[in-house]
């Protein structure tokens, strides 16, 4: 039976829950967008699982009234995969920061895309390590000085949307934390998409990242309009490589691609209800005679 939310209240809210982020942090906006999106999609919070890793962004599910697996740094995606493959009926969202998803968990990011399980991946991309106090992240822009990168970042920034396109992820979008309404719409599309959906969310870190501020993101982004054909992978790739002003919105989507769980033919019955067929078991034992 579906829970009925009273008008105006969001069942995904946890009233009076203290949130452990700095004042002005972009994470508040992303949390708000996520909860609105889940509510507007009329999802039953008991069937939504949010898996996160470690970092400031990874605290997000602590503040959402839904199922939560707050695991290890970098490991949100393998956990999310295990959940999805063991109960296909659940809506599974993996949510963490750029360090967690693209750095520590980089290998999982690559292979999660290759598998294409029906999981939504939301990455809070603030181009800095917040929890550990201001070191470079995989997406930090070159030249930015930090307590570790004292002469400025020299590594090429990780380009998540281009990497995802190269691996042929079927849904790739970029959002900006400051724009709640636009982010809600993008997250709703991603969550309702069947297959792996990546949403890279630009997020200001008001304490440690003095370069990529709210104003910087406003000046260095623009929203894609209807002239962009979201089914055109090459056009999406060209957009993904734009770095002067970054395009926001859905860059690419290909509907109808079979998911990992469909291709494996795994059962719809949740695994907590798993039963062993007596007949099949006797056959198995008998085959060693």
């Amino acid at each position: 039976m579906k829970e009925q939310a009273g008008s105006g209240s969001n069942p995904f809210d946890i009233p009076h829950k203290k949130q452990g982020w700095c004042p002005g942090c972009g994470n508040y906006k992303i949390l708000e967008s996520l909860k609105i999106a889940l509510h507007e999609l009329e999802l039953d919070r008991r069937e939504v699982v949010i898996v996160s890793g470690i970092g400031q962004a990874a605290k997000t599910p602590q503040y959402v009234n839904a199922n939560m697996f707050n695991g290890l740094h970098g490991r949100a995606l393998p956990v999310a995969l295990g959940v999805k493959l063991s109960n296909r009926g659940l809506t599974v969202i993996a949510e963490s920061g750029d360090g967690c998803m693209y750095g520590e968990g980089g290998n999982h990011f690559l292979h999660a895309i290759r598998r294409n399980a029906d999981i939504t991946v939301i990455v809070h991309d603030n181009m800095i390590y917040g929890l550990t106090k201001g070191q470079a992240s995989p997406t930090s822009l070159q030249g930015m000085k930090t307590p570790v990168q004292v002469g400025g970042v020299v590594l090429e920034p990780f380009n998540p949307v281009a990497v995802a396109l190269a691996l042929n992820a079927p849904f790739i979008a970029r959002a900006s934390a400051a724009d709640v309404r636009e982010t809600v719409d993008i997250v709703k599309q991603a969550v309702s998409f069947r297959g792996l959906a990546l949403v890279d969310v630009f997020q200001p870190c008001v304490v440690f990242n003095r370069l990529n501020t709210y104003q910087w993101f406003r000046e260095h982004t623009y929203y894609l309009d209807e002239h962009h054909d979201v089914t055109d992978r090459k056009a999406a790739f060209a957009l993904a490589l734009e770095t002067g002003r970054y395009p926001l919105g859905v860059l690419y989507r290909e509907d109808g691609r079979p998911t990992y769980e469909e291709q494996l033919g795994i059962p719809h019955e949740p695994s907590w209800n798993h039963e062993v067929s007596r007949e099949a078991f006797d056959d198995l034992v008998g085959s060693f005679r």
Partner: peptide
Amino acid sequence: RFSIVVDQAEDEIAAINAGLGASYAGARA
């Protein structure tokens, strides 16, 4: 035949974490 989900992980770290995710969802992992 036994509805056992088999996933070849990208590395051992993924394997144990996927096992824990499956267990969280109710599987004997």
